[in-house]
Structures are given as C-alpha cells and as structure tokens.
C-alpha cells in the first residue's frame, strides 16, 4: 500500500495518510467553502484501507480552526474509522487542542460522544 498526502493551504489542512504504517494525520485549518469536494479523496482512501487495515491505526487530529461545513466531513472520516475499528484494527483518535481553547476541546468531546472509537484528548501548548 502507499501514502496519500495533501499539502495545507490557508483554508485547508495538511493530510498525511501512511497506509503502510497505519497512521493518519490531519492538521492546520479546515475552513473551505466546499468541504465535501476537499475530503472526498481522503474518504475514498480510507475505504480502500478498510479492505486490509494494519493491526493498529493511529489518528492525529490537530486542527487550529474548522468550520461547520468541515465538521460533517470530519464526522464522515471518523465513521470510516469506526468501521475500520469494528473490522479488527485497533483505532485511536488523538484529538489535539490548544491550552485555553475550550471550543476545540468541546468539539472533540462532541465527536467522542457520537463515534465508537477510543479518543485521547491531547492538550498542546500555545
């Protein structure tokens, strides 16, 4: 299997998906006007990975900002991870938030309440 990467822009995050290593990272800003279009390639690759996942899948989410248009797409990504988790790969979602950023912590807790995958809330210094 290969790697899938997207370079970040002022409105879209950096994505690194190492399917060989079982590692997915989304970091930066996710505020595009059209989020569905942006996230579709990642969702497609997760679908592909779900066919033959690694025994463990580590996911790092480190977003500075995300808009409500992205929030639904991020949920779609998490739902794919939930399927992968059920399929036998030990998935962990590490949700990063900056110290003081209660809105971002709360957003992580919202997802944690919906998605049946272990979440780790990771506080980072500003």
């Amino acid at each position: 299997m290969e790697k899938f990467s997207i370079a970040g822009t002022p409105k879209t995050p950096t994505i690194n998906f190492d399917m060989e290593g079982g590692f997915l990272e989304i970091k930066g800003r996710s505020i595009p006007e059209n989020s569905i279009e942006f996230y579709k390639p990642l969702v497609d690759n997760l679908e592909k990975y779900a066919g033959a996942p690694k025994p463990a899948t580590n996911v790092n989410i480190q977003l500075e900002y995300f808009n409500t248009s992205s929030s639904k797409c991020i949920l779609d990504v998490f739902k794919k991870l939930e399927t992968i988790h059920k399929g036998g790969s030990q998935v962990t979602i590490n949700w990063h938030y900056e110290e003081d950023d209660e809105d971002m912590l709360e957003a992580g807790e919202d997802y944690q309440a919906i998605i049946n995958v272990p979440f780790k809330m990771v506080q980072v210094d500003e």
């Binding site: 808009n67 003081d100 950023d101």
Partner: peptide
C-alpha cells in the same frame, strides 16, 4: 488574547 482571537475568527 488567543482564545478571543479564535472565537472571533471562528
């Protein structure tokens, strides 16, 4: 303050 900045931006 960073937290206010983030809130306004969001």
């Amino acid at each position: 303050e960073p937290r206010l900045k983030k809130k306004v931006y969001n």
